Computed example of a mutant assay.
Amino acid sequence: MSGIFENVELRNVQALYLAVRSLFRDAGLAEADLDARVLTAEALGIEPRNLVLEYDREISTEVLTVITRYAEERLAGKPVGRILGKREFWGLEFSLSQATLEPRPDTETLVEATLAFCQTNGGFDKPWVFADIGTGTGAIAIALLSELPNAICVAVDISEEALETARQNAANNGFKSRFIPVRGSYLDALNGTFDFVVSNPPYIRSAVIEGLSHEVKQHDPMLALDGGDDGLTAYKELIGNAKRVLKRNSGLLMEIGFDQAEELSTLARELVGLEVRCEHDLAGQPRVIVVVFP
């Protein structure tokens, strides 16, 4: 056997998975076991949860060719989602493009906080009309549409490529008719009023960008990362102008960086005279702020 699997006897799927896992562990990948399982399963055309059921299956030349390419790309620093061109979020599958971030598990905290807001203010069946600012893949909007059967979302992004990706994801997941993509910058793209607005805006300080991991710098769009000198540029825009597009007793819900809760609380008081509520992710880090407009 040549290449990265040289001197490895790949008798079956189990041996292949263990070989890939070993390569990833030796390379110090943070999620070596998970990455190996996902990529091996994808090469085999099965769900990762079913990998163990296929352990005795023989390896074809085609599968070996595919997994070799996947493993080489991962070892070169390409994230799994970028290798496969897709990512799971909220139990749904989303295609990626160069203009979109990979939806990450921490962002599900924003979906959970928004659903809690909806439950408190009329229930899931209410005909909600909401906006998602900086929609990217459409993951947040589409996850919410999957739980709010009568809702309609206006999804805004400055990138036409991102909007096309989001539009396709909405169609693939069965929500095309309730997903309205609009190209524009922040809230300037919106007319009318909304029940709530959600956003995962760029919030990384410009000076910090250079220190990000290779995987992020090389594969995530800077437009979706760079939050300006203080990391607050998008929040100033959203909080300062939200009242124009929100109904009474409505909400602005946004993902935040782990160290921004206090700054954003001060910002909301200064700009609109309102307090914010902070929600934490599974690691206990501040992840979402909720501003309720009376």
Score class of each variant (00 low, 15 high):
L39M: 14
L39H: 08
A32I: 13
A141N: 07
F117T: 00
R25C: 05
S146Y: 01
R87K: 13
W90E: 07
R69T: 09
T40L: 06
R25N: 13
A19L: 06
V52H: 07
G134N: 03
L64R: 07
A36F: 14
T107R: 12
L51S: 11
S97Y: 01
V38H: 12
Y17T: 10
G138R: 14
E108A: 05
L16G: 10
K86D: 02
E58A: 11
I83C: 02
D26V: 12
I140R: 03
L84F: 05
P149M: 15
S97H: 05
L18V: 12
E54R: 13
P103W: 10
L44D: 07
S146I: 12
L16K: 12
G77H: 00
L64M: 12
I59D: 02
A71H: 05
E31D: 08
S22R: 15
A99Q: 03
L18T: 12
A139S: 08
E102H: 11
G122L: 04
A36V: 06
A116M: 02
Y70K: 02
A32Q: 12
Y55W: 13
V80N: 00
I46P: 02
A139L: 13
I59G: 06
E42P: 11
L29D: 03
L23D: 03
T100K: 02
V66E: 04
I142K: 08
F24Y: 15
A27D: 04
E88G: 02
E88K: 01
L145T: 15
L44S: 10
P48T: 03
C118I: 08
E42M: 06
E58Q: 09
Y55R: 12
L64G: 05
L96E: 05
L115N: 02
E58M: 04
G138N: 06
G45S: 10
V20H: 06
L148N: 07
G123A: 07
T109W: 01
V38N: 09
R104C: 05
D125I: 00
R49L: 15
Q119R: 13
L16V: 14
A30V: 09
E31I: 01
T100C: 02
F89I: 04
A19I: 10
E102M: 09
G123Q: 12
A143N: 08
A32F: 14
R87A: 02
D35E: 15
D132L: 06
S95Y: 02
D35C: 08
V52K: 12
S60K: 13
F124C: 05
V66K: 14
I46H: 09
R104F: 04
A131F: 10
V63M: 04
Q119T: 06
T100S: 02
Y70N: 00
E47L: 15
I140M: 07
L110V: 09
E102T: 14
A15P: 01
G85F: 01
R25F: 11
Q119E: 13
T109M: 07
T135P: 15
E31C: 00
T68M: 07
F89C: 01
K86R: 14
T40W: 13
R57P: 01
L16I: 14
F94D: 00
E47P: 11
C118P: 00
T65Q: 13
G81Y: 14
T120N: 10
G77N: 00
F94W: 11
T120C: 06
